[in-house]
Amino acid sequence: MFRRLQPDDSSATIYFDGRAIRCRPGESVAAALLAAGVDRFRTTPVGGAGRMPYCMIGVCFDCLVEIDGQADRQACLVPVADGMTVRSQDGTGRFGIQ
């Protein structure tokens, strides 16, 4: 879907649903996932529809994912950190409830 203009500055790694993704330190989690071809960040709690970022500036909340165990995080606002664990958020998210 997207490509990087400078692929070589991807020196950080995050894990999305178990898969390692190389990304640029300081960029948003959403940018990292989109660059890696992820087009389903979450499913909606009401209808179960797949969603991906719409606004990229923190207003639409369609980029919600679970980051390091915390549900409902806005991927477009949270900067990546090396080793970060990200999970797609299904429905309401897990909130530690299985």
Binding site: Q6, R24, A31, M56, I57
Partner: peptide
């Protein structure tokens, strides 16, 4: 604007 933001913030097109 969202895709423009991706360009500015991460050099992603």
């Amino acid at each position: 604007g969202a895709v423009q933001t991706l360009m500015k913030a991460s050099g992603i097109v």
